[in-house]
Amino acid sequence: MERVPMTVEGYRTLETELQRLKSEERPRIIQAIAEARSHGDLSENAEYHAAKEQQGLNEARVADIEDRISRADVIDTSKLSGTTIKFGATVTLVDEDTDEKVKYKIVGDSEASVKDGKISISSPIARALIGKAKGEAAEVTTPKGARSYQVLKIEWK
């Protein structure tokens, strides 16, 4: 079983979603199925088929989250330190071409969200940054072409 690195925050988010799916969504869907069944003929009952489809999607999501939780290698990033970039680091970079500054936290695949400043450990930019120290440059091949970033700051939060 392949272990998946995950922050404490990412693990808690999955647990919260799993609890919601099991305690809120599952009963709601079961109720919708029961109500649709009461309308009679199931072969042409669109409400019944829609509710059954929702049930399938919900149960698939539950199974996916349970799998991720079972394989999680939870890492408390607040206890990490060091002078080189690794999982859990929050890095401030400057694009050497545009002078644009960006700040990212390197997290597990399932918790990545660029709009929240969280990039996946397996993303091209994170892979290019791993092992770099403050002041070093990292070359990253992105869909928009090659980019060069200089590491301005490494933080552990």
Rank of each mutant, 00 (worst) to 15 (best):
V4M: 14
R12W: 05
R12D: 09
L14W: 02
T16R: 15
L21I: 11
S23F: 09
S23P: 00
E25K: 11
E25C: 08
E25T: 12
R26D: 09
R28F: 13
Q31M: 09
A32N: 09
I33C: 03
R37K: 15
S38Y: 07
S38P: 06
S38M: 14
L42K: 12
L42T: 13
S43K: 14
E44V: 10
Y48L: 15
H49Q: 14
A51D: 03
K52H: 00
K52V: 15
Q55G: 09
L57N: 10
E59W: 06
E59H: 08
E59R: 07
R61M: 05
R61L: 08
R61I: 08
R68I: 14
I69G: 02
I69E: 00
V74G: 04
I75Q: 10
D76E: 15
S78M: 09
L80G: 06
L80I: 08
S81M: 03
S81R: 10
G82N: 07
G82Y: 05
T83Y: 06
T84S: 15
F87S: 10
G88L: 03
T90S: 11
L93T: 03
L93C: 06
V94T: 11
V94I: 15
D99V: 04
E100V: 13
E100P: 01
V102D: 05
K103I: 09
V107C: 04
D116H: 11
D116I: 04
S122R: 13
S122Q: 12
S122N: 15
I125Y: 02
A128F: 01
A128G: 01
A128V: 05
A128Q: 02
L129I: 11
A133P: 03
G135W: 06
G135F: 04
A137I: 04
E139M: 07
T141C: 00
T141H: 09
T142G: 03
P143Y: 12
G145A: 12
R147L: 12
R147G: 01
R147P: 02
R147D: 00
Y149R: 00
Y149E: 02
Q150S: 14
I154G: 05
K157T: 15
